[in-house]
Design a protein around this nucleic acid. Structure first.
Lengths: 238, 238
DNA sequence: AAGTGGTCTAGACCACAAC
DNA sequence: TTGTGGTCTAGACCACTTT
């Protein structure tokens, strides 16, 4: 909410979500928005580009900015949403059980994945996400201790992202993810309520700060019947 | 390649992919790039923003544009990549078998999904994707005939997207996708080589043109052991 | 202090859609 | 013809990192 254009973006998102502008409507023209928000056109255009990137509008030359039906997709797991936000959106009762919170020398395949030296210390965190009494997700996080010091069990039970962004004031910027289906391991069987499922959906994420440092690798293992991933992809024309 | 900023973007992508700039390097400063490409700073910034959105660089204030390790992720299924592009990237021998290509009145749940009238005609296309001799993917497409006329079996065996973009000169702009895991249907068992798998990964996509019209709904059913989805997600700071 | 990217401006010209 | 968004410019000021 600090820049002009993100604050205008937020206001327009509100108006769309409140139904002031409905799917199929066009927003006021860029010229009009300039007047409404007392700003220049390029600034308005930055706000509208943000809306387009996030699936709220589609800009059509000669016509205007058409409002899309954003409600159909609630984007529950898309982007960098953390588990806590996800659970809040789902509105279900949930818990997080911390099974392991240790510091280890970076070793084996994980060190390679995190691009770090032999001497770097890594947090290893193993947690299960329990929804409506059932262990649904097994999260295995590896986090660089030099960047994120002071983790506690309590922090891990709530939201590590909260701690990183609000306490440590670090900015999480982007993530690369891979989604595949794999056969369950012994650990999966011990820590999840698999109900006979023989496979889990595995999301492997590499998470970066805004200064481009890779500080976290996460393996998130989901019971397949409870898995959902939603994506909004805009085409980059070459 | 028509705009200045997309052409500069393409040139920079090339330089990065050729290794002229390696991961960890910084690109020349915006000021320098202005001189190199004989253009204004805002134009250079548009190019750099495109690079950032697509995971090639991370811009760091006070430092510069840091090149990321883009090679690790080949983005095989991300975005709006069509099957043909995917297969080309995988470099495997593949075929497409067309089982059904019919026009039907929009009915049942599909009409609702495509937001179209009872009287609209829809193509229904059922295809299997065969990789290295095995039926791996079952694609069921529903496409508005008023927007995409003239489909033939031959087009469906190659690339419908090619036909839409190059023959019909329509611009595909964005898609909303949902990924879930479901139990196999009888149709899956008939048309795929499931090798005993009891579940498939289902990608449901809603595809839009650049004028915001929804013209296609696709259900893509993947054998789980051959499924992979890669995602690059940049955080939108509110 | 110097160099970097981040934001914002006021204006120009163009391409496309609607009237 | 008018109005829409798309591109591009030249310049200003700010915030941050490095020297």
């Amino acid at each position: 909410m600090k820049n002009k254009y993100t604050s205008i973006y937020s206001k327009l998102v509100l108006l769309i979500e409140e139904g002031k502008y409905e799917p199929g409507d066009t927003l006021p023209s860029e010229h009009e928005l300039c007047a409404q928000f007392d700003t220049s056109r390029e600034t308005i255009r930055k706000s509208l580009n943000l809306l387009a990137q996030n699936g709220y509008i589609q800009k059509v030359r000669g016509k205007g900015s058409v409002v899309l039906d954003h409600s159909k997709f609630e984007f529950p797991v898309s982007g960098l949403t953390s588990f806590k936000e996800l659970a809040n959106q789902l509105g279900k009762d949930f818990q997080t059980h911390v099974h392991e919170l240790v510091v280890q020398q970076a070793d084996s395949p994980v060190r390679e994945r995190l691009n770090c030296k032999k001497t770097d210390n890594l947090w290893k965190i193993t947690r299960t996400r329990v929804i409506a009494g059932e262990g649904i997700i097994l999260d295995k996080d590896y986090i660089r201790q030099d960047i994120v010091p002071g983790l506690t069990k309590s922090i891990c039970e709530n939201s590590i992202y909260d701690y990183i962004e609000n306490q440590l004031q670090l900015e999480i910027s982007f993530a690369k993810k891979e989604i595949v289906v794999e056969t369950v391991t012994e650990e999966d069987q011990q820590l999840l309520d698999l109900q006979g499922h023989q496979q889990v959906v595995v999301i492997r994420s590499y998470v970066y700060l805004s200064d481009a440092t890779l500080f976290q690798f996460t393996e998130s293992r989901h019971r397949p019947d409870k898995f959902q991933f939603v994506d909004f992809a805009r085409r980059t024309k070459v």
